[in-house]
Write a protein that binds this DNA or RNA. Structure first.
Lengths: 233, 233
DNA sequence: AGTAAATTGTGTTATGTTTACACAATCTAT
DNA sequence: ATAGATTGTGTAAACATAACACAATTTACT
């Protein structure tokens, strides 16, 4: 290893992933049961160490893939956590990432690896180290961003109905939204394409399936600004 | 140094500070001329390396203090930057922080250390490494937060007039705001205390000096939500 | 076939917020 | 005293949001 800044301390760099999922009803969190000490048997975020040969995002994707088999997942850096005592084994700085995944679309990949378990976000257990802090910060970041950008779509299948989208937003913000106002607001963004199809799974009136107009979104994601205006920060 | 995770790589951890200031007219950025190689003579953010004995925030405060003499400054973590090639000397991950300071209040501390130079944000030079990226991200973070929280007050003296506050916000967002609507919106938050005093420096009608009601702000910082509603993200 | 129950789609109105502009008051310099 | 600049307050139109009514679609059950 090349070391040219000779008098400086090198530190262990961890990566921890806060993985949100949605099953159509509840916001979920993917956790793993730690099978080594310290804190063996306790629940933990998906994590690993950064290699010398990879960037942070790259490392986060690798860690996620190694532990879950998942690929092409929406990921975003959250924050670095650097309390001296955060890992009792050795001083470690962790860079946290949050990821959003559509649970049903990734069923097969996930079941292959038996490591993880999906908790309802509200029923999540106590986590090791400073992982509780990370999760709390990730939730507020998710809320922050989802109110301003159509982030939430990452958690849905490609084609979805407006009521499904509403359920997702209700899960993220843990609040009820008015069905009629929500629908109008979403439609008025002009970012949804009516596929013409209908949701055949419904037991009552079948809702229209939409999909995100990815092109329009890229060119003009500002349209989602104040998307959830009745969410109180 | 205690090393118990035996097979993992330890990495150099840098800290870089994006320091915003305000002089009453323009948004400023504090930079330093690098006096060692590589990139000697080029402009850079204030930076240093994290010690083994300090947390990230602690390290950021130390670095800032060592380079500028500043203390008790508003600081917030921005992001970790980890491109493998970001520092040509050695693989280094940098955690960036942004700081806000009221230039006039800190005149004396700053002049003691001759290291830094305040640039008008708009005239900032090209910076070393990935520091340009950091600055851009910091600006959007500043805008993001200042629209939702009274962050900007950190850049003003304790007592200030509404027109001064407006100038600050105009500098942050690089846009003109309507004087009358701005004033009403600010007042309506209920977070400003009328000190009864007036700005004696004015050459025309002297404006009333206000100060932030810190107590109210702590208990209810949501009141600033959508503070700058006409800023288009 | 007819109807109840659940859900989805569209409409309306009251209320609140934002924008754009008018005018009066204060202060200094002449 | 008055002009010029700036600050403080008012008001009405345009727009956005919240709350609620009602009709349409689908399945299950009689």
């Amino acid at each position: 290893m090349l070391q040219k800044y000779t008098h400086e301390t090198r530190i262990l760099l961890a990566i921890d992933c806060i993985i949100f999922g949605f099953d159509g009803e509840e916001l979920k969190l993917l956790l793993i049961k730690r099978n080594f000490d310290p804190e063996k048997g306790k629940w933990s975020l998906m994590g690993g160490f950064l290699n010398e040969t990879e960037g942070l995002e790259e490392g986060a994707k690798r860690v996620l893939n190694e532990l879950t088999g998942l690929e092409n997942v929406y990921m975003e850096q959250l924050q670095a956590f650097g309390e001296i005592t955060r890992d009792p084994v050795e001083r470690t700085v962790s860079v946290s990432f949050f990821a959003l995944i559509n649970i049903h679309a990734h069923d097969s990949e996930l079941s292959r690896s038996m490591n993880g378990y999906w908790f309802n976000f509200k029923d999540k257990p106590d986590l090791i180290f400073d992982h509780n802090k990370m999760v709390n910060l990730a939730l507020s970041q998710l809320r922050y961003k989802a109110a301003l950008h159509p982030l939430g779509f990452e958690l849905l299948p490609e084609k979805f109905t407006i009521p499904q989208l509403q359920k997702l937003y209700e899960a993220i913000y843990d609040m009820k939204l008015d069905r009629r106002n929500f629908s109008r607001k979403i439609i008025s963004t002009g970012l949804l394409i009516d596929t013409g199809e209908k949701n055949e799974h419904s037991a009552t009136k079948k809702a229209v399936l939409y999909q995100l107009d990815a092109e329009k979104y890229k060119n003009n994601f500002n349209d989602f600004h104040n998307f959830i205006s009745d969410f109180k920060w």
